[in-house]
Simulated scan of single mutants.
Amino acid sequence: MSYVKPAKSLLFSIIALSALSACTATPTPTNGTAPTTVSQIRLDDYLGRWYEIGRLPMSFQDKCTHNVTATYSLKDNGKINVLNACATKDGMTSVNGEAYATDETNAKLRVSFLPSFLKKLPIGKANYWVLASDQDTSGRYTSALVGTPNHKYLWVLSRTPTLDDATYERYLGIAKQNGYELSKFTKTPQK
Protein backbone atom coordinates (compact mmCIF):
# COMPACT_ATOMS: atom_id res chain seq x y z
CA MET A 1 0.00 0.00 0.00
CA SER A 2 1.41 3.42 -0.85
CA TYR A 3 0.61 6.59 1.01
CA VAL A 4 0.62 10.19 -0.08
CA LYS A 5 1.82 12.85 2.31
CA PRO A 6 -0.99 14.84 3.93
CA ALA A 7 -1.63 18.28 2.48
CA LYS A 8 -0.20 21.22 4.40
CA SER A 9 -3.66 22.23 5.60
CA LEU A 10 -4.33 18.70 6.87
CA LEU A 11 -0.95 18.64 8.60
CA PHE A 12 -1.66 22.02 10.17
CA SER A 13 -5.06 20.74 11.34
CA ILE A 14 -3.46 17.69 12.90
CA ILE A 15 -0.89 19.82 14.73
CA ALA A 16 -3.58 22.21 15.90
CA LEU A 17 -5.77 19.33 17.04
CA SER A 18 -2.81 17.77 18.85
CA ALA A 19 -2.23 21.03 20.66
CA LEU A 20 -5.89 21.17 21.59
CA SER A 21 -5.76 17.56 22.75
CA ALA A 22 -3.79 18.77 25.74
CA CYS A 23 -7.18 19.79 27.05
CA THR A 24 -8.25 16.14 26.85
CA ALA A 25 -4.95 14.73 28.03
CA THR A 26 -5.90 14.92 31.69
CA PRO A 27 -8.24 12.07 32.52
CA THR A 28 -11.28 14.13 33.39
CA PRO A 29 -14.30 12.05 32.48
CA THR A 30 -17.34 13.99 31.36
CA ASN A 31 -19.64 11.79 33.41
CA GLY A 32 -17.46 11.84 36.54
CA THR A 33 -16.27 8.23 36.27
CA ALA A 34 -13.14 7.07 34.49
CA PRO A 35 -13.58 4.02 32.26
CA THR A 36 -12.19 0.67 33.37
CA THR A 37 -9.24 -0.69 31.41
CA VAL A 38 -8.10 -4.26 30.96
CA SER A 39 -5.78 -5.44 33.72
CA GLN A 40 -2.75 -5.91 31.46
CA ILE A 41 -1.63 -5.50 27.84
CA ARG A 42 1.40 -7.36 26.54
CA LEU A 43 2.84 -4.77 24.18
CA ASP A 44 4.69 -7.33 22.03
CA ASP A 45 1.37 -9.04 21.26
CA TYR A 46 -0.42 -5.71 20.72
CA LEU A 47 2.02 -4.44 18.10
CA GLY A 48 1.15 -4.78 14.42
CA ARG A 49 -1.65 -3.68 12.13
CA TRP A 50 -5.18 -2.99 13.37
CA TYR A 51 -8.26 -2.27 11.25
CA GLU A 52 -10.74 0.28 12.52
CA ILE A 53 -14.16 -1.38 12.65
CA GLY A 54 -15.98 1.63 14.11
CA ARG A 55 -15.46 4.92 15.96
CA LEU A 56 -16.93 7.97 17.56
CA PRO A 57 -16.37 10.87 15.14
CA MET A 58 -13.25 12.99 15.49
CA SER A 59 -12.41 15.99 13.36
CA PHE A 60 -9.00 14.84 12.14
CA GLN A 61 -10.62 11.72 10.65
CA ASP A 62 -13.34 13.65 8.82
CA LYS A 63 -11.67 13.10 5.43
CA CYS A 64 -11.27 9.35 5.99
CA THR A 65 -13.82 7.51 3.87
CA HIS A 66 -12.73 3.88 4.39
CA ASN A 67 -9.81 1.49 4.99
CA VAL A 68 -8.73 3.09 8.27
CA THR A 69 -5.80 1.32 9.89
CA ALA A 70 -3.38 1.84 12.75
CA THR A 71 -0.01 0.10 12.77
CA TYR A 72 2.05 -0.06 15.95
CA SER A 73 5.75 -0.94 16.01
CA LEU A 74 8.41 -0.77 18.68
CA LYS A 75 10.99 1.99 18.31
CA ASP A 76 14.64 1.74 19.35
CA ASN A 77 13.93 4.08 22.29
CA GLY A 78 11.30 1.68 23.69
CA LYS A 79 8.37 3.84 22.66
CA ILE A 80 5.75 2.80 20.12
CA ASN A 81 5.58 4.18 16.60
CA VAL A 82 1.96 4.78 15.56
CA LEU A 83 1.13 4.96 11.86
CA ASN A 84 -2.49 5.90 11.22
CA ALA A 85 -3.63 5.62 7.60
CA CYS A 86 -6.90 5.89 5.73
CA ALA A 87 -8.40 6.26 2.29
CA THR A 88 -9.84 9.63 1.33
CA LYS A 89 -11.63 10.73 -1.82
CA ASP A 90 -8.19 11.88 -3.07
CA GLY A 91 -6.23 8.71 -2.24
CA MET A 92 -4.44 7.44 0.83
CA THR A 93 -3.18 9.64 3.65
CA SER A 94 -1.23 8.84 6.80
CA VAL A 95 0.23 10.42 9.89
CA ASN A 96 2.95 9.17 12.24
CA GLY A 97 2.80 9.44 15.99
CA GLU A 98 4.48 8.10 19.07
CA ALA A 99 3.03 6.42 22.14
CA TYR A 100 4.25 5.19 25.50
CA ALA A 101 2.68 3.35 28.41
CA THR A 102 1.85 5.48 31.44
CA ASP A 103 1.78 2.63 33.95
CA GLU A 104 2.93 -0.95 34.41
CA THR A 105 -0.30 -2.41 32.97
CA ASN A 106 0.45 -1.02 29.49
CA ALA A 107 -3.34 -0.55 29.16
CA LYS A 108 -3.03 3.24 29.40
CA LEU A 109 -1.00 4.91 26.69
CA ARG A 110 -0.19 8.53 25.85
CA VAL A 111 -0.08 9.33 22.14
CA SER A 112 1.26 12.35 20.29
CA PHE A 113 1.12 13.14 16.60
CA LEU A 114 3.18 16.32 16.93
CA PRO A 115 6.35 16.63 14.84
CA SER A 116 9.41 15.19 16.61
CA PHE A 117 10.83 18.61 17.48
CA LEU A 118 7.63 19.42 19.44
CA LYS A 119 7.06 16.05 21.15
CA LYS A 120 8.98 17.05 24.30
CA LEU A 121 6.55 19.88 24.98
CA PRO A 122 3.87 19.21 27.60
CA ILE A 123 1.10 19.66 25.02
CA GLY A 124 -0.50 17.62 22.30
CA LYS A 125 -0.59 14.26 24.07
CA ALA A 126 -3.82 12.32 24.32
CA ASN A 127 -4.79 9.32 26.39
CA TYR A 128 -5.46 5.99 24.69
CA TRP A 129 -6.90 3.38 27.05
CA VAL A 130 -7.52 -0.27 26.17
CA LEU A 131 -10.97 -1.02 27.66
CA ALA A 132 -11.43 -4.57 26.36
CA SER A 133 -9.56 -7.07 24.21
CA ASP A 134 -9.75 -10.61 22.87
CA GLN A 135 -6.89 -12.99 22.09
CA ASP A 136 -6.38 -16.06 19.98
CA THR A 137 -4.97 -19.33 21.33
CA SER A 138 -1.40 -18.10 20.82
CA GLY A 139 -2.06 -15.05 23.02
CA ARG A 140 -2.01 -12.54 20.15
CA TYR A 141 -4.64 -9.85 20.46
CA THR A 142 -7.35 -10.20 17.82
CA SER A 143 -9.64 -7.28 18.66
CA ALA A 144 -9.78 -4.36 21.07
CA LEU A 145 -11.99 -1.60 22.39
CA VAL A 146 -10.04 1.61 22.92
CA GLY A 147 -11.23 4.94 24.31
CA THR A 148 -10.20 8.17 25.91
CA PRO A 149 -10.95 8.64 29.62
CA ASN A 150 -12.97 11.80 28.93
CA HIS A 151 -15.45 9.63 26.92
CA LYS A 152 -15.07 11.76 23.76
CA TYR A 153 -13.34 9.21 21.53
CA LEU A 154 -13.81 5.48 21.10
CA TRP A 155 -12.64 2.87 18.61
CA VAL A 156 -13.38 -0.79 17.91
CA LEU A 157 -10.31 -2.40 16.35
CA SER A 158 -9.66 -5.80 14.78
CA ARG A 159 -6.68 -7.59 13.28
CA THR A 160 -8.83 -8.35 10.25
CA PRO A 161 -10.98 -5.98 8.15
CA THR A 162 -14.13 -7.52 9.66
CA LEU A 163 -15.27 -8.38 13.18
CA ASP A 164 -18.03 -10.77 14.12
CA ASP A 165 -21.29 -9.16 15.26
CA ALA A 166 -21.24 -10.77 18.71
CA THR A 167 -17.83 -9.28 19.58
CA TYR A 168 -18.79 -5.91 18.09
CA GLU A 169 -22.01 -5.76 20.14
CA ARG A 170 -20.20 -6.92 23.29
CA TYR A 171 -17.67 -4.11 22.88
CA LEU A 172 -20.45 -1.54 22.44
CA GLY A 173 -22.05 -2.89 25.63
CA ILE A 174 -18.76 -2.46 27.51
CA ALA A 175 -18.49 1.08 26.16
CA LYS A 176 -22.01 1.91 27.39
CA GLN A 177 -21.21 0.45 30.83
CA ASN A 178 -18.17 2.72 30.92
CA GLY A 179 -20.24 5.83 30.21
CA TYR A 180 -19.67 6.38 26.48
CA GLU A 181 -22.50 8.01 24.51
CA LEU A 182 -22.84 5.90 21.37
CA SER A 183 -25.55 7.70 19.39
CA LYS A 184 -22.89 8.98 16.92
CA PHE A 185 -20.81 5.78 16.83
CA THR A 186 -20.39 4.62 13.23
CA LYS A 187 -18.98 1.58 11.48
CA THR A 188 -15.91 2.13 9.33
CA PRO A 189 -16.03 0.66 5.80
CA GLN A 190 -13.13 -1.65 5.02
CA LYS A 191 -12.97 -2.38 1.27
Rank of each mutant, 00 (worst) to 15 (best):
S143M: 14
I123E: 00
D90C: 03
L83N: 10
G173K: 10
Q190D: 08
A25F: 09
T30M: 09
I174M: 03
I53Q: 14
G124F: 09
F113A: 01
S18F: 04
K79P: 06
D136A: 13
A99L: 02
P122E: 02
V95F: 07
K187F: 07
N77V: 01
N84T: 06
F60T: 13
P27K: 14
S158W: 12
A126T: 12
T93A: 13
Y128S: 00
R110C: 03
S59Y: 12
L131T: 08
G32P: 09
L109D: 01
L114D: 00
S73P: 10
E169W: 01
T160I: 06
K8Q: 05
K75Q: 08
T33P: 02
S39N: 15
K152D: 00
K63V: 14
A7N: 09
K5M: 09
H151V: 07
K108G: 03
P189M: 02
A126P: 07
A34T: 10
S73T: 15
S2C: 01
C64W: 14
L157I: 11
Y100L: 04
S21M: 14
C23K: 10
C64F: 15
T186F: 10
I41T: 07
A34R: 12
G78C: 02
A16G: 12
S2D: 01
P27H: 10
P189K: 05
L17F: 15
Y141R: 05
G147D: 10
C86E: 01
N96K: 12
M92A: 08
N77A: 00
L163E: 01
L121A: 09
D164T: 08
Y171E: 00
K176A: 15
K108I: 14
K120I: 03
V82Q: 01
